[in-house]
């Protein structure tokens, strides 16, 4: 198991305007080698036998049936697959299982016990969603951001959220919900 610091650093960057990264990562050669991984996901330990290159997105969706994390582009451009690696929001489509190591993973299913995280409550309050497909990623990105910056300005919200596409165009509501959550002072 290795920990690819460079990769993680890239994953933490919220929005890549350059294509260099996209084209260079994960074009790793296909390997038949399977390996056993022990991961801490939403507070539970999970054992998975899988190709070490498999992105966490597909480990979650195909192997663990945690399908709240969405596939949108597969190249870290849309943010639909955002999860937490430790306290950081990362794009799970670009995070190979072999890079996770000991760090805790949190997905939308594990964000709160009963869907009552202040950010989830704010989303319900503002009735944000239209199709709803991107919203798990938006929420996961927003929660990690608010943890680091509990009182953000509008510009800071936009900057932090710029890597999460909402094709339905609910951006103004998402911003409002983030401010509602920030104002609730219990993030």
């Amino acid at each position: 198991m290795f920990f690819n610091l460079f990769l993680i650093k890239k994953l933490l960057h919220p929005y890549y305007s350059s294509n260099n990264f996209v084209n260079s990562t994960l074009s790793l050669p296909y390997t038949k080698i399977m390996a056993n991984f022990k991961l801490k996901i939403n507070g539970k330990t999970q054992q998975i036998d899988v190709d070490p290159n498999t992105p966490m997105l597909w480990v979650l969706r195909d192997h663990l049936k945690l399908v709240g994390t969405k596939y949108g582009c597969g190249i870290s451009q849309c943010g639909a697959c955002t999860i937490h690696l430790g306290d950081n929001a990362v794009r799970s489509c670009q995070l190979p299982i072999s890079a996770v190591g000991e760090q805790n993973i949190t997905t939308i299913e594990g964000l709160s016990e009963n869907g009552d995280h202040p950010v989830q409550k704010a989303w319900l309050e503002e009735d944000v969603y239209q199709c709803g497909y991107c919203q798990a990623g938006q929420i996961m990105n927003a929660t990690a951001f608010l943890k680091k910056n509990p009182n953000p300005t509008d510009e800071e919200i936009e900057g932090a959220m710029n890597g999460n596409i909402c094709r339905c165009g609910t951006y103004t509501r998402i911003k409002k919900a983030i401010k509602t959550a920030a104002n609730s002072q219990i993030v």
Binding site: G68, I108, E109
Partner: peptide, 23 residues
């Protein structure tokens, strides 16, 4: 009046709602 989306809670908690989630 304004009635909130009946699927709101499922959307914010990542429930399997979409075709891609079907198993």
């Amino acid at each position: 009046s304004s009635i909130k989306n009946v699927d709101g809670k499922k959307i914010v908690t990542g429930k399997p709602l979409f075709g891609l989630d079907f198993h």
